[in-house]
């Protein structure tokens, strides 16, 4: 670990506009500092500036940036009105990590690309202009949507995938005031400058996440991974599906583990709306989703996996298939 200065902010104004790296739960930042992948010269501890409450906001909820993941997932309002969010958070990391991890930190967690995390390799995200060793290398975890020749990494988190399906927004505070960004636009595609994970500029801080009014429906977060818990998603599906008189009236979908950001393709939801649920319909929607997908070799399996996962989730959401035991 490189030496660094440490300061503790006691109110928001001290934290913003600082030429310092904010540290919240530290569960991602400290790991990367130990590896010297992150080498901030100054840390600003934002754990004592408040922003750690969940409060009503219009018809929705406001989740403070310092609310711990565990607290958010356990909040009764979240569990009742946004079960998708609670489920996605609980699908991530481990109880110990979720006790520390915060809403803001979770959104800003960095990719798990193996080359990003190992010094001495070429990585445009860590060292702009150096190249990308994941291309042609071990890229089992990497993106099938929106990758460029500069970077094929994924955003690895779960919570944000649910937030994308929920159409949440991110409240940001900087020296020039505050702004609000749709969660769906918060993370970026790598384009030519993959060192930027999201739209935050230097000195800006996330202060909260806003959830719109609850929409009900069947809410499912399905995470496919190599072991039953404590592993990042190979692919994940966040779905809010509403049925009315046998037809789908709402289908808000987002996908994790497949792109540099939570993947949201409105066309897929649109293809479902107004139709009666059927395997045929779901297969067509899933085809539409993976139409543009492109594998890198090691992660080619993600394309059929995502396709089938979406079908499974839509069947579960609409009750097709059932859950009974059948002897064939």
């Amino acid at each position: 670990m490189k030496f660094f200065d440490y300061a503790r902010a006691t109110e928001l104004s001290e934290a913003i506009g600082e030429f310092a790296k904010p540290i919240a739960g530290g569960t991602n930042l400290l790991d990367l500092m130990k590896l010297e992948v992150e080498t901030p010269s100054r840390l600003m501890d934002i754990n004592h500036i408040g922003l750690n409450e969940i409060s009503p906001h219009g018809d929705g909820l406001r989740i403070g940036a310092l609310v711990r993941n565990a607290d958010c997932a356990a909040d009764l309002r979240v569990r009742r009105d946004y079960p998708l969010l609670a489920r996605a958070i609980l699908a991530g990391a481990s109880p110990q990590l979720r006790n520390r991890a915060t809403t803001g930190g979770n959104l800003c967690q960095r990719t798990r690309c193996t080359y990003f995390m190992r010094l001495g390799t070429r990585c445009n995200k860590r060292e702009p202009g150096s190249g990308c060793d994941a291309i042609g290398g071990v890229n089992r975890d990497h993106a099938i949507f929106g990758a460029t020749e500069h970077c094929i990494a994924t955003y690895p988190g779960d919570m944000a995938v649910a937030l994308a399906a929920l159409d949440a927004s991110v409240q940001i505070e900087g020296i020039d005031g505050s702004r609000q960004v749709s969660l769906r636009d918060f993370h970026r595609l790598p384009d030519g400058d993959p060192h930027l994970d999201n739209v935050l500029t230097g000195g800006e801080i996330i202060t909260s996440v806003k959830l719109p009014a609850p929409v009900g429906g069947k809410q499912i977060y399905r995470k496919i991974r190599d072991r039953a818990s404590y592993a990042f998603a190979l692919v994940s599906v966040a779905a809010i599906v509403t049925l009315d008189q046998g037809r789908i009236t709402r289908a808000d979908l987002a996908f994790g583990g497949v792109a540099h950001k939570p993947w949201h393709d409105p066309a897929v939801g649109r293809a479902l709306i107004g139709n009666e649920p059927s395997d045929q319909l779901f297969s067509e929607a899933a085809d539409l989703l993976v139409n543009q997908a492109k594998g890198q070799g090691g992660n080619d399996f993600k394309i059929p996996l995502l396709r089938r996962s979406l079908i499974a989730v839509l069947r579960e959401a609409t009750g097709i298939g059932g859950n009974d035991v059948r002897n064939l």
């Binding site: 071990v138 039953a228 818990s229």
Partner: peptide
């Protein structure tokens, strides 16, 4: 264990990458 066949580096050299079964498994 994963290896990059271009330079031999191990690509999952920690317990987040090398998956021993967890309780839920």
């Amino acid at each position: 264990l994963g290896f990059d066949l271009r330079d031999g580096q191990m690509t999952n050299h920690d317990l987040a990458g090398y998956h021993v079964p967890c309780h839920a498994d």
